[in-house]
């Protein structure tokens, strides 16, 4: 089973919930394989709480066009076909704007002279390791690149265990509701939405719930972090949309302190471990 953790708003506690849920399940000692995949490739930080032992890594590459000016007849077909306006042809010469290129390969396929080759460029890095018995993987987008989606796609392909009964894969998504989150939600069996009881939390929870519904209507559940015990602002929304609230993590100075030291909540407060495990049982039904 694959569960993607999303939130819309940043800073609600996706990584806190993802790491603590994953570690709780792993410690529950069942035979199933538990893995955590950090798909927040612009700022992967779940590893800070897990201090994983790294085992292997792999680069994510994209193929950029290389133009052979000798073979080029300046027919402009490459510039015409390019959906992203990354190519211009002037004075018989090709001008290529790398930062606009999406590495789709259309120019290569359409060049009648066969004057365009491809060369790999590193756009990110994938890493895999473990924390005790928990399998952990993360992707990191190379500095200077604007599109995280290819890194997330490759990470899921490389790291995700076969989706079987005995495995639980937890995906930590990035904040927001744009392409990286869509890619992180794709193929998941359920979405766990982490929110906080503030107007900002509700606003972005509404957006991400709408996104999941529009995508494929997979089951949604909510976790309220920084909870006041009574959180009418979120409760009202969940009641109206028929979304279960599975867990609340209280607004607590002690939990914040634990977090700030890079420690897991379930290490400092083992009583929460049962709640995380109970969540999984509920979500399986």
């Amino acid at each position: 089973m694959v569960i993607t953790i999303a939130s819309g708003k940043g800073g609600t506690g996706k990584t806190t919930i993802a790491t603590n849920l994953a570690v709780s399940l792993m410690r529950a000692g069942s035979r199933r394989s538990i893995q955590l995949v950090d798909c927040d490739v612009e700022e992967p930080n779940a590893g800070l709480f897990l201090n994983p032992v790294w085992e292997n890594s792999k680069n994510v590459e994209r193929l950029l066009p290389v133009f052979d000016q000798e073979k080029c007849s300046a027919c402009e077909q490459c510039a015409d076909i390019c959906e992203y306006n990354a190519i211009a042809v002037v004075n018989g010469k090709v001008l290529f704007f790398k930062e606009l290129c999406h590495a789709c390969g259309s120019c290569v396929l359409n060049c009648p002279q066969g004057a365009i080759a491809e060369t790999p460029e590193i756009v990110g890095k994938l890493e895999h390791g473990h924390h005790e018995k928990l399998l952990f993987s993360q992707g990191t987008l190379e500095i200077g690149f604007s599109s995280p989606v290819p890194v997330i796609r490759d990470l899921k392909k490389w790291a995700l265990l076969p989706n079987e009964k005995e495995t639980v894969s937890i995906i930590d998504a990035s904040p927001g509701t744009t392409c990286p989150v869509v890619e992180s939600l794709r193929g998941a069996d359920a979405a766990l939405l982490v929110t906080e009881p503030t107007p900002f939390g509700l606003h972005d929870l509404t957006l991400v719930a709408e996104l999941v519904t529009k995508m494929d209507q997979k089951p949604i559940a909510v976790v309220i972090n920084k909870s006041n015990d009574n959180d009418p602002i979120i409760e009202e929304f969940c009641l109206q949309k028929n979304i279960p609230i599975l867990m609340r993590l209280p607004l607590s100075r002690e939990i914040a302190h634990t977090y700030s030291k890079g420690q897991l909540v379930v290490d400092a407060f083992p009583q929460y471990q049962q709640q995380f495990i109970a969540y999984l049982k509920t979500s399986r039904n």
């Binding site: 510039a79 992203y84 704007f97």
Partner: peptide, 9 residues
């Protein structure tokens, strides 16, 4: 994206 490039072309 690339409106400047397309317009200039």
């Amino acid at each position: 994206g690339g409106a400047g490039v397309q317009a200039a072309q």
